[in-house]
Amino acid sequence: MTENWAFVAIFALLSLSIPLIALGMSWALRPKRPGAIKQSTYECGLETVGETWVQFKVQYYLFALIFVLFDVETIFLYPWAVAYGKLGLFALGEMFVFLGILAVGLIYAWRKGALEWV
């Protein structure tokens, strides 16, 4: 089993190293001549007004909460999908019941306008 996870590690290292190599090479090869105009936010166009850190409306927290709930649901999909071959139709039905109950919640949140972009 450990050997299988070694493949995951190899893929993780590869996917980490490719962007690092690309960015690192362009950083190493490019000429570095910074100037006032180069470092401005927009070379042409209006300067931005105010801070880039803005406070978001607290209602957006609801999106995070709903996401967390469906994220927890995903955890149960994982062992179900792995063991599915041995479990058969009963597990399929059970998972549909599970998803159905959660879909009710999603429909409720939707109907209540919780997913509106306020």
Binding site: L62, L65, I66, L69, V72, E73, F76, Y78, P79, W80, A81, V82, A83, Y84, K86, L87, F90, A91, E94, V97, F98, L99, I101, L102, V104, G105, L106, Y108, A109, K112, A114
Partner: peptide
């Protein structure tokens, strides 16, 4: 795989309760 098998044989009812609890949490959050 072992967890999946246990979940859908011995622990089916608690598993469905989990979905109800998540539903309650969702409605409560909204």
């Amino acid at each position: 795989e072992a967890i999946g098998q246990a979940l859908f044989t011995d622990w089916v009812l608690p598993f469905e309760w989990v979905s109800l609890m998540l539903l309650v949490a969702l409605i409560g959050a909204v």
